[in-house]
Design a protein around this nucleic acid. Structure first.
Lengths: 220, 220
DNA sequence: ACATGTGAATGCGTTCACAGCA
DNA sequence: TGCTGTGAACGCATTCACATGT
């Protein structure tokens, strides 16, 4: 299949074809009127725009189960990410290979980042160590951090942090699951509600859409 | 601090206070004019709405590094999730405790789900096993699946699937990182762009897809 | 003839601003 | 006086509809 139309792509993605065309148009005019989009060319242009054609060295700090899982994750390499180093505070792990990469001690952190020109760090440490590790990463020149630790990290201006909470997706599923069960057959392990201080009328909430995520209050 | 104002909560979350009040209003009128929101009461109401007050037994299938990391993840218990069982196809793991829970063999899958009234399953298997595991989970009565395997699962109507791609967040960071660097100093491991477009067209299968949250690409 | 690219119309979520109540 | 709750205003994203180009 050398070319695709916006109609086909939209159907495959479950979106409106006009939206797809308008989005593509922000990247440039890569389609051909009367024909469609050249698949290979389009893939390249989108990949480039998303930064997938660049080589991104990353370091993973905290080689526990999660760190090891990340180190072994095949999806990284195919998206242009290269695990430049694995770092852990446990001296017992030093030198031991995980996913074919020898673990290095935290002492080497600054040198590793500097030597490899790493700008993205992944924190998979326990919550208690996260901020400390974060500070060192930032001081060493890291400007983007992916945080798996259940802590909110504070970083200086100019440093991006994204927090991954592994339980959020479960919460979303549970939220929908709760709705499937209907609002009546509740017989569950409920905790007792605190006595209502503001004992007032409760307005009925409007029905949320069938699709969609949690009703969100998102931070900046 | 027994009460909070929408202003305080909004500042803490980095959002507009009006948005926060409006969002809360969809849940009911839980605030007190002139005073604010009673913290304990508010927490309970939000928790209940999100389904956090219920006990959700979950099974984790595939006890590799990621499965073990999930089993050990403390955030689950505090959000109302209870790991009812760990399941793996490797007989060598059977009976071996992970996070204090003995791993059970895949043969027991149906019985475990049925006996514990589990409705949410987590798949942390290799990609190759995911669909098969998924089919068995669904047949056993599971109606919500959290998929960590890098595969798109197909499920019957009425079953929710959420896919977690551990590299997506990294992609988002890399995307921003690319922008920070400016569009000029590119000197990187770039692959060569494909040339021009040929012609022809085919049809593809329609399918709705819940999205993650890649940043929007705005006009230059 | 056919599909892109885009100005215009539309819809919806966010923000403003203030009435209402403790 | 102080803060909630909410109708109305606003702005952005999506969708429509068709001019444009192959």
């Amino acid at each position: 299949m050398p070319t695709v139309s916006s109609e086909e792509l939209a159907a495959a993605a479950g979106v409106n074809s006009a939206k797809l065309r308008k989005d593509f148009s922000y990247l440039g005019s890569y389609g051909t009127r009367g024909v469609g989009y050249d698949v290979e060319y389009l893939v390249y242009q989108i990949s480039r725009e998303l930064g997938l054609t660049q080589d991104w060295p990353v370091v993973i700090v905290g080689i526990g189960n999660l760190g090891a899982a990340l180190a072994n994750y095949g999806g990284f390499a195919s998206r242009g990410f290269r695990v430049a180093a694995l770092i852990d505070a446990d001296p017992g792990l030093s030198g031991k290979p995980v996913a074919g990469i020898p673990v290095q001690h935290t002492d080497e952190l600054e040198a590793i980042i500097s030597d490899n020109g790493v700008s993205i760090g992944v924190i998979a440490t326990p919550a208690g160590a996260a901020q400390q590790v974060c500070d060192r990463l930032v001081a060493a020149g890291i400007t983007s951090i992916l945080n798996f630790a259940p802590t909110v990290l504070s970083v200086p201006e100019g440093v991006d942090v994204r927090k991954v909470d592994l339980s959020i997706e479960l919460q979303i599923l549970a939220f929908h699951e709760q709705r499937k069960a209907g609002e009546e057959p509740q017989g569950e392990t409920e905790t007792a509600p605190p006595a209502a201080p503001p004992a007032v009328a409760v307005t009925k909430r409007p029905e949320a859409g069938p699709d969609g995520d949690l009703p969100a209050v998102m931070p900046a």
